[in-house]
Design a protein around this nucleic acid. Sequence first.
DNA 1: TGTTAGCACTCAACTCGAAGGAGTGCTAAC
DNA 2: GTTAGCACTCCTTCGAGTTGAGTGCTAACA
Lengths: 342, 342
Amino acid sequence: MELDERKKIILKAVIRNYLETGEPVGSRTISKYTDLNLSSATIRNEMADLEEMGYILQPHTSAGRIPSDQGYRFYVDTMMEEKDREFVELKEMLLERQDKMETLLKQVAKVVAQNTQYAAMISAPSTHRNKVKFIQLSRLNPEQLLAVIVVEGNVIKNNIIPIADDISDENLLKLNILLNTQLNGLTMEEINLGIIAALKQQAGVHGSLIGEVIDAVGDAIKADDDPEIYTSGTNNIFRYPELTDNGRASELVGTFEEKQQLGSLIQESLEADPGTGIQVYIGDEAPIKSMKDCSVVTATYELGEGMKGTIGIVGPKRMDYDKVIGTLRTIQSKLDELYKKE
Amino acid sequence: MELDERKKIILKAVIRNYLETGEPVGSRTISKYTDLNLSSATIRNEMADLEEMGYILQPHTSAGRIPSDQGYRFYVDTMMEEKDREFVELKEMLLERQDKMETLLKQVAKVVAQNTQYAAMISAPSTHRNKVKFIQLSRLNPEQLLAVIVVEGNVIKNNIIPIADDISDENLLKLNILLNTQLNGLTMEEINLGIIAALKQQAGVHGSLIGEVIDAVGDAIKADDDPEIYTSGTNNIFRYPELTDNGRASELVGTFEEKQQLGSLIQESLEADPGTGIQVYIGDEAPIKSMKDCSVVTATYELGEGMKGTIGIVGPKRMDYDKVIGTLRTIQSKLDELYKKE
DNA sequence: TGTTAGCACTCAACTCGAAGGAGTGCTAAC
DNA sequence: GTTAGCACTCCTTCGAGTTGAGTGCTAACA
């Protein structure tokens, strides 16, 4: 069977109505709601078809219809194609460029959660593809060196390196020059074991000490800080009984604490990004079991210089997709503006 | 009226029983539970007295008794006096000394939450009283300096300082020497505006540029990183209906996300610490409104060099105080061991 | 005087059935 | 193809009745 124009209108009306009220939608409501001027009986026939086709379903025999996952998917797909969403005016917007990335990200998560009334999460941009701008080794004391590495985007990494023997100022200076000339301009991704080995060779036969230090610097660069993810508005899930009834709240709250699980979701969305930067996962489509009754909308953001991160919004399937996507687009562009001048 | 020995035994029996079952305790239960060999009628008389004295209360006329806040307080106080708690064997213990403080703290929170089955939080040790070990300014590029400050305990702070004019290598070297000779050995707390002003004077009439840089270094030192607090096991609160019924879960989950509120609680417990390092807040005693139906147990820990932080456990009032306090004591000593050798 | 048995009473929790109502599917007529 | 009408379904709500745990009080007992 085909989804003819009238069925589409009815389907959309059902979904819109359900998004607003959260209650199953009956045929009489649709009959009044739309300007199709059809009786409820006719609508009933159409709705029976739509149910057979899998777009809507009945919680029980004598109830109205609610959208199925397939129905939501249809709605999201056609909506996204149909019109470019307008930007949304954000309330309590207070995004300023921050010294600390962390502060900014927490702010963004908060603004998003407050504006949408869903749970929000945000991942720190990966710096793997950022270029090393500056490396410095300093002697803290005879047993410890301090390595400071600055990459584009002013992300700073520190590492304290324990050393077996003291190192002379001269050697330290040489080492600093060597590291900077050889590594500056490379991305963290590019600095692999081969390059480290080559470095060691160039450092000459200064003995194992230098080798150790170079290894430690390499480690510091590669060190994959576990995925930094910040969340906000977790308690917004309590606004939606379908997410919290039957003790499901516990599972969801737990998931929001397990940053690793959220990380996998964000990873997935980065990989699957078709270019629009926005993706919608409905129910089982998200790779996290505890979110099977949720919808997740993710957006890739960019903070200049190719630093990409992801914002995610988690809410009930009857989420206000328009508003959420609008909010995310707005945030995307604000962040873009904020860091354009760099 | 006095709390005679028999009343104490009965009160403890009521509390113990309620901690185990979570159900109001009736007189017949006590009559069998204790070896007082008293009939339920006698117990009823005693319980009526205890209620009048405020140690227990009835949810409704025909129900058993549950402990009041005052009752819990009595229980905790006498228990804590009576015996030194034994340490508790921790399950899934995996505490290793970590390069990153953050990783360790998250681990501790997780271990505590898993072992107690309550919600746990931990604050990063304050470094205000730690001494500055090392300061270094480096030139990133003509417009930016990088300030790196290392304090005892190997805590590293970074700051990028924008400068109006380029600075010569010579001046930078001088500045570094000045900063290190003047500030090393002082605690972050001690470095106030007066000292900064004195520094500026010593730097001479090098003009406003140097002054600005010194100010920025001062700011970097004082910069109060907002209280780093990590939580784990938030979803454990769902194990206790009295915390989650009537939509109270939302408020609690929200509180666990608002690190600032948790910070005030931790601050309060640091200030009130009588020396034992362990404190119990029952109901309203904690300074956070949303925790009025909870008990909070806090413990101060120390990571060598006077770096003190706080661990907190939040659960229902009918918390297994013995186990919780034992767990915290165990953690305290493990952390102490872990960092003793520094 | 303290303890106990006995009894009437209270009140939350559970069960059950009836009533109400929203909504459907089907049929027959337009 | 559309619609009015009607029987049917099934969730929800409500009140009544029942149950059972537990109490407070009284009177008797050691």
